[in-house]
Simulated scan of single mutants.
Amino acid sequence: MEQDPNTISYRDISCFCRYGCEHAEHKLRQHIFKKPTQQLQDRSVTQSVRKNISSPHAEVEDCQPTGADIPCVKHFSNSLDPLMALKRLAKCDSFGLLHHECEALNPYIRLIQGQRRSLSSDKLMVDTFASGFTPKDLITSQTMFAAKIRMDGDCLPGCGSVFAFGKDDHSDLLRLLIIHELALHADFYTKEENLMKGYQKETSGSNELVHAYAMYSDKFIPGVKFNVRKIFEEETLGLLKLKSFMGIWQIFALSSVLRMQITSVYPQLGNPLVRQHLQRMIMPRVKSTSHIAFIMWTSTRSKSPYNWLPNHFVPLLPFR
């Protein structure tokens, strides 16, 4: 007999008795669920949010919380809480799960736009120590100064926050957007042809840039055969730790998040080949402004060429 789809049959215990046993726990019981009368209100995105999301999806399907203390993505209200979303993503223990969770965030991700910034208009201070790293061969229409930026590990997201909002206090949002971009577009950022866009120098061989960027990752182990995609995924998962340092792949993602070109500025220090790979123009996946952001690799330690270790990013801005 066909059973009502809203009815479930069950026994009180797992029974291994012989056929015909009739003790109480052996008998089938039935439970009838109430038929749904209306769609859940929290499955749809409000009209005010839908106008600003970067994905055409209207709903979040099959959303399961990964931790009891972190609410499901579909329970967020009109505005996304970046720190709460980052804590949720931090529960991901694989790149596949991270990709799934970032897809679920699509309806709540708002597009942002990088803009031209200056020290005077945005009331930013000059970082005199970092300004000493500005390379002499940097060609710009105006004199550029290093702006003071947070030094807590969120310096690159802080740079993105400056170009998007004029100040560096939206670093949690920019970290979330960078992770979201990398998780959903891993194929794009691990292809040589995409990394070559904006690169002015001729490479010496096939896949030079993608291999170099994998080797610059802290997930690369010297002397061990490596897989670029695996290193990319491990590095992206490492970003889930708050205040974790970022590198060249994250500058590519930031360019796409801001939808503007970024000039990656590398001081005239360290290995010349490293500088050749990192001093370059970076193109976004989708460009929506002619303005260019300048972001420089710097150090908080020493200007000595023998002790050079880039561990900080600063935005380079004109005075006006």
Score class of each variant (00 low, 15 high):
Lys136Met: 05
Leu97Phe: 10
Ser121Asn: 07
Leu97Asp: 12
Asp127Tyr: 07
Ile112His: 00
Asn106Cys: 14
His99Thr: 11
Arg110Val: 07
Ser120Pro: 01
Leu138Trp: 01
Leu97Arg: 14
Leu138Ser: 00
Gln113Arg: 13
Arg88Leu: 12
Thr128Val: 14
Pro135Asn: 02
Leu119Ser: 01
Ala104Ile: 13
Gln113Lys: 15
His100Ser: 13
Leu89Gly: 06
Asp93Phe: 12
Cys92Ala: 12
Met125Cys: 08
Leu138Asn: 00
Ser121Thr: 11
Ser120Gly: 06
Leu98Cys: 07
Ser120Val: 14
Ser120Asp: 12
Phe129Asp: 06
Lys136Val: 04
Lys123Glu: 15
Gly132Phe: 05
Leu105Arg: 02
Ile112Asn: 00
Gly132Pro: 00
Leu98Ser: 02
Asp127Met: 14
Asp137Cys: 08
Ala90Arg: 07
Cys102His: 04
Gln113Gly: 08
Gly114Ala: 13
Tyr108Cys: 05
Leu97Val: 10
Arg110Cys: 06
Ala104Gln: 15
Gln113Phe: 10
His99Phe: 14
Ile112Ser: 00
Tyr108Ser: 09
Leu98Gln: 04
Cys102Val: 03
Asp122Thr: 04
Ile112Trp: 05
Gly96Arg: 03
Cys92Arg: 06
Ala104Phe: 09
Ala130Lys: 06
Ser120Met: 13
Cys92Lys: 08
Arg116Phe: 13
Ile112Met: 05
Ala90Cys: 09
Ala130Pro: 00
Tyr108Gly: 00
Ser94Gln: 12
Lys91Arg: 15
Thr134Tyr: 04
Pro107Thr: 09
Ser120Ala: 15
Leu89His: 02
Ser94Asp: 07
Gln115Lys: 06
Leu124Cys: 14
Leu89Arg: 01
Glu101Asn: 10
Leu124Glu: 07
Leu124Val: 11
Ala90Val: 07
Arg88Val: 05
Ser118Pro: 04
Phe133Val: 03
